[in-house]
């Protein structure tokens, strides 16, 4: 059974980086644009919100921009890419025996703490990603490859923010 394969080792990071670099180049070469994820996640949320409160979407400027009026927030190239990312991640996980319902966490915290921290971290990350106009993929990776000054400033800020806090939350991971 494919789900019970023995998990394989991850590939060499430099090889992984090279492959990622080639994918990033092809994205730029074909579409003129890099990779991304957070914008599409935002659009999925807008689509969900649209189901429950369509008029709210029309009234909040930032939301209306994506899904106001008759426009449908999921009709977007980024959303197609997000769907691809899920499929690609799943396919690779499947072939390498890494698709498994589980929680990856540090040894000294409970699964519950891990889930709460993941949710909280995601929330903070999502907010920051919108403020910075892109996440690690859309802003740091894509902008970095085309030498955008803002993208490098952003990238180093992420590392500074994370390193500055790492010591205080070490119990989460060690």
């Amino acid at each position: 059974m494919i789900f019970s394969r023995k998990p394989k080792e991850y590939i060499n990071p430099y090889l992984g980086g090279t492959l990622l670099g080639v994918v990033l180049f092809l994205a730029f070469y074909i579409t003129g644009n890099g990779l991304g994820a957070s914008g599409a996640i935002n659009r999925v949320m807008v689509a969900i919100l649209e189901l429950f409160a369509p008029s709210h979407v029309d009234h909040v400027g930032y939301l209306a921009h994506m899904g106001g009026g008759t426009s449908f927030s999921l009709e977007n190239s980024g959303v197609a890419m997000l769907l691809g990312t899920i499929l690609g991640g799943f396919a690779s996980g499947l072939f390498n025996g890494r698709v498994k319902v589980e929680i990856r966490k540090g040894p000294s915290i409970t699964p519950r703490t891990r889930i709460i921290m993941a949710l909280l971290g995601g929330l903070v990350m999502g907010y920051g990603a919108r403020l910075a106009r892109g996440c690690t993929s859309g802003q740091a990776l894509s902008g970095g490859a085309v030498l955008s000054v803002g993208s490098f400033a952003f990238m180093f800020s992420i590392f500074i923010g994370a390193y500055a806090l790492a010591y205080f939350v070490r119990r989460l991971w060690n």
Partner: peptide, 8 residues
Amino acid sequence: GGLIMGVG
């Protein structure tokens, strides 16, 4: 935004 994301 980057600093906030580092925290996240």
